[in-house]
Amino acid sequence: MNTQQLKQEIIDYSKEIGIDKIGFASADVFEGLKERLKRQQALGYQSGFEKGSVEERTEPDRLLPEAKSIISIALAYPSRIKNGPKSTKEERRGVFCRASWGVDYHKVLRDKLEKLSAFIVDKIPEASTKVMVDTGELSDRAVAERAGIGFSGKNTAIITPEFGSYVYLGELITNIPFVPDTPLEDGCGSCTKCLDACPTGALVQGGQLNAQRCLAFLTQTKDFLPDEFRPKIGNFIYGFDTCQVVCPYNKHVDFHNHPEFEPEPDVAKPKLKPMLRISNREFKATFGHIAGSWRGKKPLQRNALIALGHYKDKTAVDEIIAVMNNDPRPVIRGTAAWSLGKIGTDDGFVAIKEAMDKETDEQVLAEMEKGLAFKETSTT
């Protein structure tokens, strides 16, 4: 079988198994990306979540020695929740970013890619493949860009003509030398909407991200959230996607092609107060199937406390006091104290002062001081 015929059969099969877009790229070294990654490292712009060395992330033959081609796939995900629940004064809600709605995309894409791999090996028994989704060494976006799936936007997302940037990406390296597809031309032009909307200046310039200032990354960290970012995250408890929402290519884009990605309203927009007392077992049962659960409940609970503070939710004061007094984790106790101060009730301030007499952790005590400082601010 010639590779052009096999390529068409793979494309046809990809449609059968629900892949929204597929592209083929060479397995050459990603030289431009290599230089960008080295610059990112030198500037301290990386998140720390990246897997592998710069070489492993840019040289496909380090991952599959006989690599000749890379097949890139994209699956569209929804941007709107049908009949989404509303936040009320009695029951404030947080929100997961759109990329964490529905079943964890890693599992869904991996399943599709493994089916593609089996299809290829069935046709060409001597074929070798390696499947990767997001957590692999290769840059999904660099592969997708080379394979013509979309162009790399100024917000660093891959933007497809059909689905905007609301797509999950994955790839399959193979030793079959497919004719590569043509990359798309850049489509951002002079538009700077994503740069203008980024609340922390994480988008340093078009296509360059300082992950250390990116709210999507910061919501996933487990330590205290630095003060300057607390006013910025609003009610996001995982991820942040304003740079996608403002993109003109995403206007009116809302695809519901995959039942697995349909958002469960009460999971995608959970009530905040129950998040404070959720057990590990309840957390796993409620959120364990979504991508936003991968860091565990601690960052989400910290972010929920910050969100309740932003809402100035007086109905949550008693529960937040209980967290401040009883939670064994310093980050959660300290953030609870900050949140109480932000809400600003007399009961909350009294509780912070009483808790300070028993607290021994220096960082928590510093957060309690910040909480009490809100009282001084409100009376001046």
Rank of each mutant, 00 (worst) to 15 (best):
Q8V: 10
Y13K: 00
S14Q: 00
K15W: 01
K15L: 02
G18C: 00
K21T: 09
I22R: 01
G23L: 14
F24N: 04
L33M: 10
K34C: 01
E35L: 13
E35R: 12
R36P: 08
R39H: 09
Q40R: 15
Q41R: 13
L43D: 15
G44P: 06
S47V: 06
G48E: 01
F49H: 06
E50A: 06
K51C: 11
G52V: 04
G52N: 10
G52R: 05
E55C: 03
E55D: 13
E55L: 12
E56R: 13
E59C: 13
E59P: 01
P60A: 04
R62Y: 02
R62T: 04
L63S: 02
E66I: 07
S69N: 03
I70P: 06
I71P: 00
I71N: 04
S72H: 09
S72C: 15
S72F: 09
I73D: 01
L75D: 11
A76P: 05
P78L: 04
P78T: 07
P78I: 04
S79K: 08
S79H: 10
R80E: 14
R80L: 13
I81K: 02
K82D: 15
N83Q: 07
G84F: 13
G84R: 12
P85A: 13
P85V: 10
T88A: 08
K89P: 14
K89L: 12
E91S: 14
E91Q: 15
R92C: 12
R92P: 15
R92S: 11
R93W: 05
R93F: 09
V95P: 03
C97V: 12
C97L: 07
C97G: 13
R98K: 14
W101L: 07
G102T: 03
G102F: 09
V103D: 06
H106F: 03
H106M: 07
K107D: 07
L113N: 04
E114N: 13
E114P: 00
K115L: 01
L116P: 05
S117L: 08
S117R: 10
A118Q: 08
F119S: 00
I120F: 02
I124P: 00
P125E: 12
P125N: 08
T129E: 10
T129V: 15
K130H: 13
K130L: 15
V131E: 11
